[in-house]
Design a protein around this nucleic acid. Sequence first.
DNA 1: GTGAAAGCGCTAACAC
DNA 2: GTGTTAGCGCTTTCAC
Lengths: 342, 342
Amino acid sequence: MSASGSPTRRPRRGSGAVTLHDVAKLAGVAPITASRALSKPSQVSADVLRKVTEAVNRTGYVRNVLAGGLASARSRLVAAVVPTISGPVFLQTVQALTDALAEHGYQLMLGQSGYVDSREDALLDAIIGRRPDGIVLTGIMHSAEGRKRLMAAGIPVVETWDLTPTPLDMLVGFSHGDVGRAVVEFLRRKGRKSLSIVAGDDERSVRRLKAFQEAAAAAGLPVTVVYVPAPTTLKSGRSALRQLLEQRPDIDAVFCSSDLLALGVMTEAQVGGVRVPEQLAVVGFGDLEFSADLHPALTTVRIDGTAIGRQAAQFIVDRAEGREIVESVVDVGFSIVERESA
Amino acid sequence: MSASGSPTRRPRRGSGAVTLHDVAKLAGVAPITASRALSKPSQVSADVLRKVTEAVNRTGYVRNVLAGGLASARSRLVAAVVPTISGPVFLQTVQALTDALAEHGYQLMLGQSGYVDSREDALLDAIIGRRPDGIVLTGIMHSAEGRKRLMAAGIPVVETWDLTPTPLDMLVGFSHGDVGRAVVEFLRRKGRKSLSIVAGDDERSVRRLKAFQEAAAAAGLPVTVVYVPAPTTLKSGRSALRQLLEQRPDIDAVFCSSDLLALGVMTEAQVGGVRVPEQLAVVGFGDLEFSADLHPALTTVRIDGTAIGRQAAQFIVDRAEGREIVESVVDVGFSIVERESA
DNA sequence: GTGAAAGCGCTAACAC
DNA sequence: GTGTTAGCGCTTTCAC
């Protein structure tokens, strides 16, 4: 049962797997017909469809998507770049992305850039080399080199979790500045007088921080700041509250750049006998799955990470299928979920 | 600047990207030589290397890995199947896997099966179609159909987070039964008399539960059980403790099938005025990043998810590079990290 | 509705 | 060390 009865040829490798050729031969049709039976069943006769389906079942054939991708210049792969999946903030987005893409027959390739721009550049080449049908970036692509390479590659790009007046291509995000301002307004309305903020040192957190500071200054409220390294942790939240209280014992509100930090702050408050929310209002960011069930339940800024992931997937699939994208920037907004902690 | 000066041929598509051909022509060498300059620099002369490198830089060429994979029957893709990345337990593993693979030039493809076997089967076809160089499964592949397809595909498989006497191929895990037994022994030594367990209804949790029950029975200790749906959450931990106390108010120890559940139990305990660890010892599972910094700090079963991910990556890379694998089963073990909560 | 031919971009095999 | 040739497995184009 060798090649195909043809004369001796130069030997060749090959995976040894069942190919479309095998299926077609078994079904008694041309390879292209078998191909059509699989990808566009409506274009073949019922008879052919039946024979091909049977041949597939008998051989256990699974289409080689890589080969198909090479021929059609569509890989049905989508790359996602996140700083780290351990920061639970992006989890929802990655999960939604994976699921939404899978529904359309696309597969997600995951890359972690760390919070370092240089690693992002290195990752980019690895990604472009796979000719994905789209790239989903967490945040904005800043490095000029990276922007250039992406443009040159001509791959659809969705930047997420941020807004910028100069998107590379498509964009799904929200305004971090607006978040900072909204939280100040929220705390002001609650009558808090001495604000503070615990911020990761990544760019988006800093942007929320700056807006927070400006809005507070405009309202005549003092702000005490503590930076913690990204990714943020419960532990750094605990030590941050200690630092805050040392610097300024009279703070009565703290805005944390993640719910995990907020949990840390609340834990430390409990240990130190600081009552939340009576003495200290705590506001988180991200509305993680556990936040609603903490004690006290955490007031936090809710971002719909699932919506971001789904919209990003939609953008890329639409583009890949050749549909026109009317509005390539989506602001998913945010909301402050008021619970017990503030 | 059309095809290559050749006579009019049938038109063809193509991505329009720079190809190895272009680079080779610019460098004045044959394509295969350019290919070698890029993948096996030691096999070409310094002069060729210089010319090719320059051509690459000038054109911004990025190798089409898909095409290379088709030709060499090595995709340099590795698929990982997890129930869900939201369950934070597998995060470390996925992260370590991504990083370790990236170091060797491999890329991770992520698939989520949910906790449903049928979805796992569907995913499998999507994965096999991409001809990955390896598949990393979370847990054991159970469905006979799935096992058959994987065997037939001839793709190296690493099962993780579990041990089984009948691995499909390679295995990196630990014994869930041993965990259950060890926790009973630990609690017994602490003098706890009325044990309880909150378990996710996924298979591995249930295995820990069964072993826990048996060991407790052997020691003459009663065990109260509450099941919660997987993936486990803080919320289900809270309601589980309420149920436990209703069923049996005298319980003095609870083993939770995740740290998140344990946090829920501790939260509910605090709300209900149950002192941890005095009245109730709490033991978690997973040793998540935040567990050490909770108040009280959580006693938990530590699994080295990073080691699992790294070892799985090593197995697959070794296999792909044709290195022989001497011992294809690795037990990474576990340890009980004793902190304040028990 | 079906098929023949060509070729996506790359690398293994075999010369020289 | 370098080049020629063939072909990985599929889908596009064009013809019937």
